[in-house]
């Protein structure tokens, strides 16, 4: 039963809600707007919100001067690569834990979670030295491996919470009806497992895209993804805010859209199923 809400109350919350929402969103909006200004207008005082000569030259400049596209590709390869690799390793494992749990399943899950809590500086030195000796520093392969490993616990956990919701009885029923294993997988399991796998994939791509400890420490010019590429704007010469904004907009826009689609899964994934 919906409660009646007085129009005045609704108007009040609309005003407050939009004011606060816009305030929180403002830095992103401002970055987006600044990316279409000239460098002069970007630092103009008083600043202009909408009434300036819109230009897209920053975007072409970012590409031509610093090869933005190469770094974007690095981000794509590392985040998608590590996610797919992670799923390949995690799906069988989460599947086994959800459908044939043993006494130790819970301990294994807890232990996996605890590896996520290891602060990265605890293993920075050895990983750096191993990477140096194995020529993995500043390579996409090296970063993909690290990204797979740091997110593996989250992937296993998320998949586990999704798989657990698939009723085991249904498999039994399918088997009774004479379904072969292949049919069982294609017609019964896959349709129920795919949504969970897709959500896990989405969240993991977001996390890998934005990861900034290992990418900053293990990459340089060659394999740097966007996180590390943007960091190079911290010590530039001359006017650069409009270009910084253009590069930033390109770096966050795709992931922001993905993130908006995955709000619900985000809660579940990031709290390891503790809040649904």
């Amino acid at each position: 039963m919906a409660r009646a809400i007085s129009p005045r109350r609704k108007a009040f919350f609309t005003l407050i809600g939009w004011t606060i929402g816009l305030a929180i969103f403002f830095p992103i909006l401002w970055t987006f707007l600044t990316s279409f200004k000239t460098e002069g207008e970007a630092i103009a005082s008083p600043p202009s919100l909408l009434f300036f000569d819109w230009t897209t030259e920053n975007y072409s400049e970012v590409q031509s001067r610093s090869d933005y596209f190469k770094h974007a590709m690095n981000s794509v390869v590392i985040s998608f690569g590590s996610t797919i690799l992670g799923l390949l390793i995690a799906i069988p494992s989460a599947w086994a834990m959800a459908f044939s749990p043993t006494k130790r399943t819970k301990d294994i899950l807890m232990w996996m979670l605890s590896t996520k809590m290891l602060p990265p500086v605890g293993v920075l030195v050895p990983i750096y030295l191993i990477f140096r000796d194995w020529n993995l520093l500043d390579t996409r392969l090296g970063l993909t491996i690290v990204m797979t490993l740091i997110n593996l616990p989250i992937i296993v956990w998320m998949l586990y919470t999704y798989f657990k919701e698939i009723p085991g009885d249904i498999l039994e029923a399918a088997r009774m009806d004479g379904a072969s294993l292949a049919k069982e997988i294609v017609y019964v399991l896959a349709p129920m497992a795919v949504p969970g796998i897709a959500s896990t994939m989405l969240l993991n791509i977001i996390l890998a895209w934005n990861e900034a400890f290992w990418t900053l420490n293990l990459s340089a010019a060659k394999a740097a993804p966007l996180t590390a590429f943007i960091a190079s704007y911290s010590s530039p010469e001359g006017l650069f805010w409009a270009k910084l904004s253009a590069a930033s907009t390109l770096a966050i826009a795709p992931i922001l859209v993905l993130g908006w689609f995955s709000q619900r899964q985000l809660v579940r994934g990031l709290t390891f199923g503790a809040v649904k």
Partner: peptide, 17 residues
């Protein structure tokens, strides 16, 4: 959507902005 947006901004972008 506006309120949750900052979570998806990569740390280096957020810091430099």
């Amino acid at each position: 959507l506006m309120v949750i947006a900052p979570f998806f901004v990569m740390p280096t972008v957020s810091a430099l902005v």
